[in-house]
Write a protein that binds this DNA or RNA. Sequence first.
DNA 1: CTGAAAGCGCTTACAG
DNA 2: CTGAAAGCGCTTACAG
Lengths: 329, 329
Amino acid sequence: MRRPTLEAVAALAGVSRATVSRVVNGAANVKPDVRTAVMRAVDELGYIPNSAARSLVTRRTDSIALVVSEPPSRVFSDDPFFSAVIRAVSQELEAADRQVILMLASSPAGHARVERYVAGGHVDGVILLSMHGADPLPAALGRSRVPMISHGRPVSSLPVPYCDCDNEGGARTAVEHLIGLGRRRVATIAGPPDMTAAQDRLAGYRAALTAANRRPLVAPGDFTRESGANAMRNLLADDPEVDAVFAASDLMALGALGALRAAGRRVPEDVAVAGFDDIELARFSEPPLTTVRQPVAEVAACIVTMLLAAEPPTAPVILPTELVVRASA
Amino acid sequence: MRRPTLEAVAALAGVSRATVSRVVNGAANVKPDVRTAVMRAVDELGYIPNSAARSLVTRRTDSIALVVSEPPSRVFSDDPFFSAVIRAVSQELEAADRQVILMLASSPAGHARVERYVAGGHVDGVILLSMHGADPLPAALGRSRVPMISHGRPVSSLPVPYCDCDNEGGARTAVEHLIGLGRRRVATIAGPPDMTAAQDRLAGYRAALTAANRRPLVAPGDFTRESGANAMRNLLADDPEVDAVFAASDLMALGALGALRAAGRRVPEDVAVAGFDDIELARFSEPPLTTVRQPVAEVAACIVTMLLAAEPPTAPVILPTELVVRASA
DNA sequence: CTGAAAGCGCTTACAG
DNA sequence: CTGAAAGCGCTTACAG
């Protein structure tokens, strides 16, 4: 017993396939009684359109790929920021009646899979998330001429439209806050240098320090908690005078908090700590974390709007961040 | 400039569409020089088959839906067990050259989305993960006659084939271990009662206690860390004599560890603790956790094999677990 | 408002 | 080993 087709519905309702198609797709110009008859037939047979057939003619799939350039462990367990972004984007896409296809592409094999999938016409658009360095994905996907928006500024030489939060401005505000607290030696724990979010936040830190005529003190990290703890230990070793730290991600700030506690430094009395992201955990840390809130939902909404727009967007959109002051700084 | 079609490749190579199709699909019987000519044309045009057209005739999509009946927060951040399972299943599916479509279906709206997607013929099969109670999904999906395998024993009245680990046996072994340690008052922190994994582990606990002629002491939990901490506090309040606890998940065991520490009880000296799952964190807790290892990779492989089998499998497959003894018990 | 017909881009018996 | 032709299940101008 095969799934019923349009043909079967048409036969049962006593109309043509074209009419059934119109009713199913909600076209306006169908006589009410005909519509009713068709709907009844649809219900009776449990008819659901075959999506392959539909895609073949409409050239649409109503699916969007959300491509994350990170390994599964990081997406699924480690970083609550990813889950927040994925959740927000999914919600927007679902609201727009699109199916989300989550694809992780951290390995070359993953890249190839994504390329084939997109090139095969499985999706109407691609959202790029968490790209590192000169990710080859935009160029590869560009060939299939599928609309593509990057979540966050891409490094790509290709002009991929994107939406991002104001990483530089947010970082600068946070560092200015630390300086405004009267802190003398303000360090930063930077993110991975191959990611623009990390670059921009570092630039914001430098700008604030330069404006205040201070020497920068930078410890490298990679956005993870462990790297934050390590960096904090190094910072303390390098310069025991450190009395404030801006971590380029909350997870790193949390790591730093742990390292400071282990080193017997009080937060914020001895060392003030600020983060970036405002993940949920930031409210529950000891002490609660002062941080820069990213407008996750707004960025997600913006990206989906850009992606589904009739005209491909040209200018990037930068959304403002907000400093959330809690107990840590 | 549209994507090139079979037609274009055929014209360029000077052969028929049928021949191009054969080459592209790796059919054996094509003359080497013809094959070469076609491949060259494919390369030159950057031809990639249109998947909608292909699906329409083959009635296959080479995609499999992995449906998780949990909210995004739990899948993406909270529970490392999900990420392990998703990762393992994805790996197996990719090895079998299938695309994984991850779908979360914790709300009625999510259910409807999944149903429509599956009924629309988007996938060749469905893997059900983490179903609760009498989940309506199997019945709904059953109507589309898509092959379906459950990861873990379903409650469903429908005979959904499944693969699971030996939850009852694993739990019994763990509890026997606690009793073998000479513990007198062995409690359990149970999982959500609407999940078979929780039911079976509880049954294993009861069986071991009954065999040893002990009274059961059960505190309800829901597999999360917080619920484990709560349950442990209640257990301590209900019966201060408790000197061993079997938690039905590692996350709950970790929560119990925290609660015990807060209550000033030493582990394992005062209270021995065992968990279930063997998530990565289990090795790094203080003290490292004695737990029951689930064969995550093996279950994943089994499920994919069952799903892709020519004949729909009938009997469930139960894989053995293994007690991993560390410092906590 | 409705239907007949063409066509989306493939695969696959069927001949040869 | 290769090609001509039918057909997968839809949508959509085009007539009427």
